[in-house]
Nucleic acid binder design. Structure first.
Length: 713
DNA sequence: GGCATGTGTATTTTT
DNA sequence: TACACATGCC
């Protein structure tokens, strides 16, 4: 079958796409067309008669999966390629556990919590156990989650994890162990899984006799993208999933491994041939993305890394245009230079959509964001604080969560404290009265894990909710009114009216009531929440608008549970996902953390803060492995560029770091641009050379002068 | 016990 | 700058 689209591939790509059975490792350098190759492979399998529903495509983000499946569908002319199971490891784990979870002791109504929830739970335990008492400093909740998550994902003993990655917490080992113990216990009792549990339970699933075979037996082919960023649990899951057929294809680039902090290990990709005997290895080295000078500079940067599959990217795209190293006086000059360069390229015909600004840490773009806003240059920012992590969104979601999973004590805790006069202590008391989780005591209160629930019939309301509606606990006077509002809201969301007495077996009556849609439920909760929001926040108007966005998103979901889970497993990654998309065809610039830029490409790329201490980050230079990862990060950033690469180096930093009062330290150029690498750049200083003068009659003015609406109407 | 206010401190990347 | 924690007032 000589499909036309196969002829578009180079020999290595074609070999990978048409590979027969057995394990295949595709080592694919940046920009070598791995997405295309993988999509072609999926298409090939389908053309060969493989049932698309029996193909599992694991990617790093859902967006990546959607893109690949979209392409495959294009190739196969719509032969049901969309039946391919595609998504992240975590989302796939969730789907499988919804079906098979009971065989590993999971309740049917489990909910998934994000890192923020996990931190809150840690914090509760931290307080309950009184670990932080005395004048000792004890690790903060976010640190606890990091340590826990790393330990679990790397499957390394806590003491060693602390030694190696969190040496300043070494003395608190025992208390941490105690907290982690309680943490796992409470999650179980509350029918809640965190991100790590999704992987752990999936792995457990593959090991259960019969069930494991059934789960693995759903798929005949497994494809994994970005394999360099998987951890050892994920590798084990894959081994379990393809024991029977060994039809596994992994694609990755060890030079782009940037998630070691999440316990990803490049051992997975380096040792793949050992772990899967009989592996075919295909290496893709021809880069179709960038001009050769950009690759030369990128290769030079990488040449200093220690262990990696040797590959030298090359391109047919010869060019005399070297990447640019922009020296700037300080950050504000950097900002000015970036804006000016962006507009210059824009005038040259490169739309904003084809330009991106990349940086190490989310806040590195703060200064630029202000400037862009001032100049009316539209942009979307990826990475950093998310919509979903803001307090008001979490508040509203917590209301939905208690209805979805009434044993989710953490959400109760959050919801109850929205009411005036209810703090941690009172909330705990109310939760105990509702029977919605037994706080710190008696681990057996609600049975460990897989309790069978008699009240799971459609339309049924499980006990703590029924208790809230029928036998509400007493609350402080100051909270009475809102508490009633809350009960009304919960009732409305479950399709019940308050105050009507029901028989003990009122199920038939309840299931008859019309269940509001997810969006309607949000509306109900929002009206309960509005006065609280106005009371709490100065900027309540902005926040309330966010709730409307939430309602918009919810329209796409038929079930409340799916909505909540989707939001935690695949949260909107930028403001663009939220804006009701009237701006879809608008041209906008991309600002992104380097991590979030993975897999993307732009004609023009600007990399900010190429100073030692920023890239590599001060916080990561403790050991050689850390520096290596930062180097790969810089490499990832550079290789996103097709035609123009700008690296900005501000010489001077003003901020007072860590109390040291070096109010204006001089920075060093990032160590990754050592002499030979630096020589591959052309250096410019941010002195106006005339080339970049903006012509007031053209594009620049479109952004910079926007006041005429004030008098022309 | 709740809540407002003050003080000191640590500060990345994300499913 | 946000967050943990202490203090003091209702």
């Amino acid at each position: 079958m000589a499909q036309e689209w196969l002829e578009d591939l180079n020999p290595q790509q074609r070999a990978a796409a048409t590979h027969g059975a057995g394990p295949l490792l595709i080592v694919a350098g940046a920009g070598t067309g791995k997405t295309k190759t993988l999509a072609c492979r999926v298409a090939c399998l389908i053309e060969r008669g493989v049932d698309p529903g029996r193909i599992l495509l694991l990617t790093f983000t859902r967006r990546a999966a959607a893109e690949m499946i979209g392409r495959a569908r294009h190739f196969t002319e719509g032969k049901a390629a969309n039946k391919v199971w595609g998504g992240t490891f975590h989302a796939t784990a969730n789907r499988l556990l919804r079906v098979y979870g009971s065989s590993v002791g999971l309740p049917a109504d489990f909910t998934v919590m994000d890192a923020g929830d996990a931190a809150d739970l840690m914090n509760m335990i931290r307080n309950d156990l009184g670990v932080a008492k005395g004048d000792r400093r004890f690790p903060k909740k976010a640190t606890l989650v990091k340590v826990y998550s790393y330990t679990v994902n790397a499957q390394i003993e806590l003491t060693r994890v602390l030694d190696r990655h969190f040496p300043w917490c070494g003395d608190d080992r025992d208390a941490m162990a105690q907290i982690f113990d309680e943490y796992t216990r409470r999650k179980r009792r509350q029918h809640v899984l965190d991100y790590d549990d999704l992987l752990l339970y999936w792995r457990a699933l593959t090991a259960v006799p019969r069930v494991g075979e059934a789960v693995a037996g759903r798929f005949d082919h497994i494809l994994v993208d970005e394999y360099q960023d998987t951890n050892s649990i994920q590798a084990e899951i894959l081994r379990g999933m393809c024991k029977a057929h060994d039809n596994i294809v992994v694609v990755g680039d060890d030079a782009q491994s940037i998630y070691a902090f999440r316990a990803a290990t490049i051992r997975n990709i380096l040792d793949f041939p050992k772990q899967f005997p009989g592996t075919t290895v295909v290496t893709l080295e021809q880069n179709y993305r960038s001009i050769q000078p950009i690759l030369d500079a990128s290769n030079a940067v990488m040449s200093q890394a220690k262990e990696h599959y040797t590959k030298d990217l090359w391109s047919n795209r010869r060019s005399a245009l070297k990447p640019v190293l922009m020296s700037c006086e300080d950050e504000s000059e950097q900002t000015a230079a970036v804006s000016r360069n962006i507009l210059a390229h824009f005038e040259d015909g490169v739309p904003l959509m084809q330009q991106a600004v990349l940086f190490r840490a989310s806040h590195h773009s703060a200064d630029l964001e202000v400037d862009l806003a001032r100049r009316n240059i539209p942009f979307h920012k990826f990475g950093g604080l998310k919509f979903i992590e803001t307090a008001h969104i979490k508040d509203v979601l917590a209301c939905l969560r208690i209805i979805e999973n009434p044993y989710d004590q953490l959400s109760w805790f959050r919801v109850l404290q929205l009411l005036d006069g209810i703090g941690p202590k009172t909330a705990q008391g109310i939760i105990a009265e509702l029977g919605a989780g037994a706080g710190g005591e008696s681990p057996g209160a609600h049975g460990g894990g897989g309790r069978s629930r008699a009240d799971c019939a459609p339309g049924a309301i499980s006990t703590p909710i029924r208790c809230l509606l029928d036998r509400p606990p007493a609350v402080p006077q100051s909270a009475r009114e809102r508490f009633t509002d809350l009960r009304k809201a919960v009732a409305a969301c479950t399709g019940v009216t308050l105050g009507r007495p029901r028989g003990a077996e009122g199920e038939s009556e309840l299931s008859a009531a019309r269940k509001p849609t997810v969006a309607e439920q949000i509306e109900v909760v929002a009206s309960f929440y509005t006065p609280i929001c106005k009371n709490r926040y100065e900027n309540s108007a902005v926040r309330l608008r966010d709730l409307e966005q939430l309602e918009q998103i919810a329209r796409k979901y038929r079930s409340r549970g799916r909505f909540i889970t989707a939001l935690t497993l695949d949260p909107p990654s930028s403001t663009s996902d939220l804006a009701g998309k009237p701006s879809l065809d608008d041209d906008y610039l991309t600002l992104s953390t380097i991590h979030s830029a993975k897999g993307c490409e732009w004609t023009v790329v600007h990399i900010l803060h190429a100073a030692d201490g920023m890239i590599p980050s001060d916080l990561a230079t403790g050991d050689e492995a850390g520096v290596d990862e930062e180097r790969r990060l810089f490499y990832v950033a550079m290789t996103r560029a097709k035609d123009h690469l700008y690296v900005y180096f501000p010489h001077r930093y003003y901020h007072q770091r860590f109390g040291h009062a070096d109010a204006h330290g001089y920075a060093q150029l990032t160590r990754f641009l050592f002499a030979e690498a630096r020589a591959l750049f052309v250096e410019r200083t941010e002195e106006f050379d005339g080339d970049y003068e903006t012509d007031p009659t053209s594009a620049g003015s479109r952004f910079e002068v926007r006041v005429d609406h004030l008098w022309k109407s």
